[in-house]
Design a protein around this nucleic acid. Sequence first.
DNA 1: CGATTTTGACCGGCGC
DNA 2: GCGCCGGTCAAAATCG
Length: 161
Amino acid sequence: MTDKNPRPADSADNYVTNQWPLELSEHLNFDDDQWLDDDPDSFVSGHAFSHNNQANEVGGFGGSGTHFEESSSRDVGNEREKKEVRDRVAFKTKSEVEILDDGSKWRKYGKKMVKNSPNPRNYYRCSVDGWQVKKRVERDKDDPRFVITTYEGIHTHPSYS
DNA sequence: CGATTTTGACCGGCGC
DNA sequence: GCGCCGGTCAAAATCG
C-alpha cells in the first residue's frame, strides 16, 4: 500500500475495453493548473447528448453536456518512459447521478470536503479483479447539477509496457 | 456471508 | 518549522 499500484498480473481479463458509449464533445488541455477556480463563465453549455444513463428523472434535465479535458505528458518529444503514465481525464457531465455504469464496479472510498466548494468530493476506485482505475467525482460549486468526474488510470489501450 | 459503504484519522507534499 | 490541503487507507456498519 505504501506503493502506488500493486500491479497485479494484469494478464488476461481484457474484457470490455471500457469503450464508453459516451463520446466527448469537447476537449480542453489543462496543464497542472487548477482549472476550476474562479471561472468567470464555466464552459457549461448546451451540448446535449442523447445519452440516457440511469438518470433519475431530475427536474427536467435529460441531455448530458460533456466536457472532457485530457492531460497526460505535456512533453512532446519525450515519451512516457518513467514510471506509469497517469492519464487524467476530467469529464464534466451534466447529470445528477455520478454512478454511471460503464461496465466496471466502483467502490466508494473516502469523502473529502474541498474548500473551494461547499460540496464534498467523492473518491471512487474500481473494484474489479484487476483493473486499476480511479475515479474522482466532485459536484460543481456553481451548478450542483453538474458533476465533474475525473478519471485517472488505464482508460484506453496501454501502449507502454 | 459477502460486498459495499461511511467516517475518521493519517500521511505526504507544498507553501510561507 | 509549521500549517494547510489533498489524498488514501482503515475499521466498522449496513445492505442485498
